[in-house]
Design a protein around this nucleic acid. Structure first.
Lengths: 328, 328
DNA sequence: ACACGATATGAGAACGATATCATATTTGAA
DNA sequence: TTCAAATATGATATCGTTCTCATATCGTGT
């Protein structure tokens, strides 16, 4: 089915059918005949031909590090809801946390192909920045802040600070299991928030009790073991993610420590896995799905209004203790 | 940048550039000049124009019920790996478990737009079947079996049967928390497997101890409460998913029961959340990511070879007890 | 020397839509 | 009544590719 066949069936020119489809002037009479023809045939315009002419693909590229992660998939759920409501479709690029893959997709989407990009980022290299600078379609970065770009991110610094403060109410010897500082959001900012809370509380920061792992449960177990070997008397641990916290808790139990009696554990992210270990992990709830929705809305604004200016959106959070909100 | 500009820079016709890009006859000399021009300009062919001409979009539509689910996102990770390796891109449609949304996307993708569909299905209505029958592009169904269609699914029946057998080694009064039979895989087949194991073991099946919930943790808690009210002496429970099992376990603990001392709990799916509750849930490991990869490969075969015949692939499983494999 | 297949090239049509332009016809305000 | 604006329509060009076809050159076996 093409627009030509519809035009013929309805006895009008193809230009009129096009006008019908794009709210131009069409008389009641022809409008009705066209409607009928389309209904009968189930005609759908070829999006490729439309794109070729209009340069609008109605496609949004979503580049992400790992789809099978609770955090990321919640963001994508939010993104998907907003995009589909606004008539956009979602082109998914799963990079498996591989920089080369990220750059590959960033390049692939560069010229044509998509009207805009949502980039769920972890670590920015100079090459990322270079490509992003040259971009012709709007980009919104999700999960990290980057100067000069529209972005939506979590308030990692204050979240880490507040939950650490809370932990220090009864903790005396704090430890820290984090991730690389190259991940500004989850690494650097959380670490700084942790350090700020210690300073404010007048608790000495012992660098040997701050270790770096990755985002996995296994990493939490392993690093907890290291920490406990260094300082058997530590009595509270901040973990950069809930996964890590679950791993750390698992090791402590194994080592015969009671939680939170002997050692307090706090996490970040409020992921489902943290919600059903016993005792329940004290954590920070981030609004991942909402941030996905916000980022998508922001992108749509930029795609549809070329005067739209870049924006930064820092999302709030909630401290969760034993399953309920303590503070915002 | 268009093919015309490249042609001009290289001093050849646009047909020659096209041949260069599609491995036709081009002399060494011109080949070199074209390569240079492309390199200098960073030219990338417009995929829309290509599609318009060739009718190949190199796009695969993936329709799924809920991206923020461990099971589904693992399948998508597998799908994504295979597709991107073979030069396809992934158009994601998240239906939020809404039949109308499923049908909407099934219709949207019908005519043009994608070269093939991967449909991660839960419940088939007659309308689904009607649309699928009329499909012109290849479809592979993931997670369910459907007569006459290519599909990849788990061996839910035997998985449920074997894990139930295991549970009955020490269990005497079994209960069952499942999901609707309209979900053939997770509902009907697991229920039948459970029933078959009871029959084989000569344990009477008490219909009042078989209840139906949904896939959530909350549902597990609630249904466990109901069951315990009906039969306080029940000593083992089969749960159709790990989420449900975690919920059931949480309620039992609350009710002062010890696991597995007083009541054994088994789940299905080996999801991360089941791996870190204490005691660890006995469950069935399904190869979700692998099944996504298999489904994607199957679809590619069907898209690229029109003589390809429909196939069914039933995936194996492993029983996991305390974190290690017991049987296959 | 000839013929034939392989190699090499470009002109022009086609894919299915929208945009531009020219041209009627109908309104409605002065 | 008149004339400009609003409404209505179709012919034709165009988007950036690939495909078909016509044509030319080259190598090689007879």
């Amino acid at each position: 089915m093409t627009i030509n066949e519809i035009a013929e069936m309805a006895g009008v020119s193809r230009a009129t059918v096009s006008r019908y489809l794009n709210q131009g002037y069409v008389s009641q009479e022809k409008r009705e005949r066209i409607r009928e023809a389309i209904e009968k045939t189930g005609y759908q315009p070829s999006s490729q031909a439309q794109t070729l002419r209009t340069k609008k693909t109605k496609l949004v590229g979503v580049i992400l590090p790992k789809i099978s992660s609770d955090t990321v998939s919640r963001m994508v759920a939010g993104i998907s809801d907003v995009l589909s409501k606004r008539g956009y479709q979602l082109l998914l690029a799963n990079t498996n946390n591989d920089t080369e893959e990220e750059l590959k997709y960033l390049n692939l989407f560069k010229d044509n192909q998509v009207d805009g990009i949502l980039f769920i980022a972890t670590i920015f290299s100079p090459r990322h920045k270079k490509i992003l600078k040259e971009y012709r379609v709007p980009v919104v970065i999700l999960g990290q802040r980057l100067d000069g770009f529209s972005c939506v991110y979590q308030d990692d610094y204050h979240a880490a600070m507040q939950i650490t403060e809370r932990m220090l109410k009864s903790g005396r010897i704090p430890a820290y299991i984090g991730v690389t500082d190259r991940d500004e959001a989850a690494g650097l900012n959380r670490r700084k928030g942790f350090a700020a809370a210690l300073e404010a509380a007048g608790v000495p920061l012992r660098p040997e009790l701050m270790v770096e792992g990755d985002f996995s449960i296994e990493s939490g177990q392993e690093k907890m073991k290291e920490l406990l070997a260094i300082e058997p008397k530590l009595d509270c641990v901040f973990c950069a993610t809930d996964n890590v916290a679950v791993g750390a808790a698992a090791y402590l139990k194994e080592a015969g420590k009671s939680i939170p009696g002997d050692v307090q554990i706090v996490g970040t992210g409020d992921t489902p896995i943290g919600r059903y270990v016993t005792p329940r992990i004290t954590t920070v709830h981030f609004f991942y799905k909402t941030s996905g929705m916000e980022a998508a809305s922001m992108l749509i604004e930029q795609m549809e209004d070329d005067r739209a200016v870049t924006k930064e959106l820092k999302m709030g959070f909630e401290i969760m203790e034993n399953g309920s909100t303590i503070s915002g």
